[in-house]
Nucleic acid binder design. Structure first.
Length: 553
RNA sequence: GCCCCUGUAGCUUAAUGGAUAAAGCAGCGCUCUUCUAAGGCGUUGAUCUGGGUUCGACUCCUAGCGGGGGCACCA
């Protein structure tokens, strides 16, 4: 059993001995290691009730506490905290685990089946930095859940029908652009979108195209559509590959639309006629009304979402289906989930929406029809370019590949280091930074650890853990890794892991600067083991964030 | 107007109701004949405002003020 578990049990017993009935024993990591490896503030909570001071209660608790396996010292500190310090052997055990097991893997989701849907770009439109954000958060979320024992399937839902497609096709025809050229599609969409807003006859033409996309009655439009769709999807596939995402399932709005229409038609008591459209009256759930079928008889995104939910469940029966999108869709999702609760309550209970902030420019919101969109690939290309210079001076065998890995790390880290509820103000210079609190910093730390372990191997210095070796800042932080992973999983907040990883990397670099690992003494064996454990921690941590971990930089 | 998110150092962000609010960038000063200086060390600097709850509030409640998003045929 883990030290944390032992401490909790011992505390519960001590509290019972003092006849305090605490339903929960809070145990936390003190912010500074001087205050121990674990700490509880429970004495502060119950002192008043027992008409004593927190410190006095804490002293009594410590006196009533049995010896805990893995704990070397218990002390009362500050206002009445009880602090626990791990034994050197317990910390050494973590070093051992880090080197031999799937370090950090948990079991809180064992046996669960979870589908995670993310990225969700729209064919015929750009893959912009917002999609990059959804991808980074979704991929990290999927990996975290997977690492906690669940079976995870990655899903991508792409809008291959709808007004945006009609606008792009209208633009392709007007400007006689090549539909097989992915870059031309963005231009075509921008032209169609602005014409739709400014020009009445263009709007009518686009509406007509939209209807034909759904019913596929016009061979010429079908040809343009099929070519453009294929080009778009192939283009996206390259981006997923460079980001390290591999989807298990692809869903398309062209498939979810008929499915959704069927569901809406089958429930006239839930979806009612209003002003020529078919709507769901969200007011009964404290929300707002949303249109499911337009007055032209076409399904909206809402209807498609309904169809999607059923299709997902048919494709792969899951315990939970998580959809990752930007905040702007939160209100929409609440209404759709409220409707689902009426249509299929059992399934609705398994659907979860996670929203994240928006990727914003300092100049305001991005909009593809205004043309101030930063595409995902242009950003990655810029970052790769910026990383090339450093990569060229590195020890990497393939500097081009390294530059790309660094670029992915830089952008993903920037997204994953902050709480997901907040907007990210995108600033080019900061995204291009390869130093300090950045993805490449963690990668560099990992590469250093990897190389020193390699060198030890070459010099035939074998790793050997000295259970009596004094626990250090680095080894004590290392011990926390599995808990940091679990915390991030419970909260479904990758940035909690990012924070930990930064702190850990920083501790490693401090240690590395101060301590010569291969110093020719018998102490080297333990230090090599610690370096190897750090390497494994950084490697697994980066993997969980979806960031590549090159071995040489 | 209503609903959701959000306000921390000059800038970008952390902080599980808990101990001295933590980093990076920018600035200044050190540090490579030692396993990678994309590193390390030092230094200046912050909780939007008013009430409240609590032994204890950046965190919870409340009233303001500022920013973002959403609210019927877009996704």
């Amino acid at each position: 059993m883990t030290a944390a578990h032992n401490i909790k049990e011992a505390l519960k017993a001590a509290l019972a001995a003092l006849s305090i009935s605490a339903s929960e024993v809070p145990l936390e990591h003190p912010a500074v290691l001087e205050n121990g490896d674990y700490s509880t503030s429970i004495a502060l909570k119950y002192a008043k009730e027992l008409k004593t001071t927190p410190r006095a209660l804490a002293e009594r608790m410590v006196a009533a506490l049995d010896a805990v396996d893995g704990v070397a010292k218990v002390e009362v500190a500050g206002a009445g905290f009880v602090n626990f310090f791990l034994t050197n052997a317990a910390v050494a055990e973590a070093i051992e685990s880090a080197r031999t097991k799937e370090w950090g893997r948990g079991s809180i989701n064992t046996g669960k089946k979870v589908m995670v849907e993310y990225t969700d770009p729209n064919p015929f439109k750009e893959f912009h930095i917002g999609h990059l954000m959804s991808n980074a958060i979704g991929e990290a979320t999927a990996r975290l859940i997977e690492y906690s024992g669940a079976e995870v399937k990655r899903a991508n839902y792409q809008g291959d029908v709808g007004p945006h497609v009609a606008k792009a096709i209208w633009g392709l025809r007007k400007l006689t652009l090549d539909p097989t050229d992915a870059a031309a599609l963005g231009t075509a969409y921008a032209a169609g979108a602005s014409a739709f807003e400014d020009d009445g006859s263009a709007r009518a033409e686009i509406d007509a195209i939209n209807a034909k996309i759904y019913d596929r009655s016009d061979p010429e439009i079908n040809a343009v559509y099929d070519a453009g769709r294929a080009a778009s999807l192939a283009h996206f596939e390259d981006i997923y590959a460079s980001l390290g995402t591999k989807f298990d399932f692809y869903f398309f709005e062209s498939e979810t639309a008929p499915e959704g229409l069927q569901l809406v038609a089958a429930h006239p008591e839930i979806f009612v006629k209003s002003e020529g459209a078919v709507v769901y009256q969200g007011e009964k759930a404290g929300l707002h009304t949303r249109v499911f079928i337009t007055s032209k008889g076409l399904p909206t995104y809402e209807t498609k979402e309904l169809g999607l939910a059923r299709m997902k469940a048919q494709k792969w029966p899951f315990d939970q289906s998580i959809t990752v999108t930007a905040h702007e869709q939160s209100g929409y999702f609440e209404v759709v989930i409220a409707a689902m609760r009426e249509v299929f309550p059992d399934l609705a209970a398994k659907i979860k929406h996670i929203s994240h902030g928006m990727m914003r420019l300092s100049s305001g919101k991005m909009a593809s029809r205004r043309g101030n969109v930063i595409t995902g690939e242009s950003l990655l290309a810029d970052l790769t370019e910026a990383a090339k210079e450093r990569a060229a001076e590195s020890r990497a065998d393939d500097t081009e590949a390294l530059a790309r890995q660094i670029a992915v790390a830089a952008i993903k880290y920037q997204i994953l280091k902050q709480a997901s509820g907040r907007d990210i103000i995108f600033e080019r210079d900061r995204a291009l930074s390869l130093e300090g609190d950045s993805g490449p910093y963690i990668q560099y730390t990992h590469a250093r650890a990897h190389q020193v372990v390699e060198k030890a191997r070459e010099q035939k210095v074998s790793a050997k853990i000295d259970a009596a070796a004094e626990a250090t800042e680095l080894s004590r932080l290392l011990h926390r890794f599995p808990e940091a992973v679990e915390y991030a999983v419970r909260e479904l907040e990758p940035h909690l892991l990012t924070n930990y990883l930064l702190e850990f990397a920083s501790a490693f670099n401090r240690w590395y600067a101060k301590e010569q690992i291969l110093d020719g003494t018998p102490a080297a064996a333990h230090k090599v083991a610690l370096a190897d454990a750090a390497r494994s921690t950084l490697k697994n941590g980066l993997w969980l964030l979806g960031i590549p971990a090159p071995e040489k930089m």
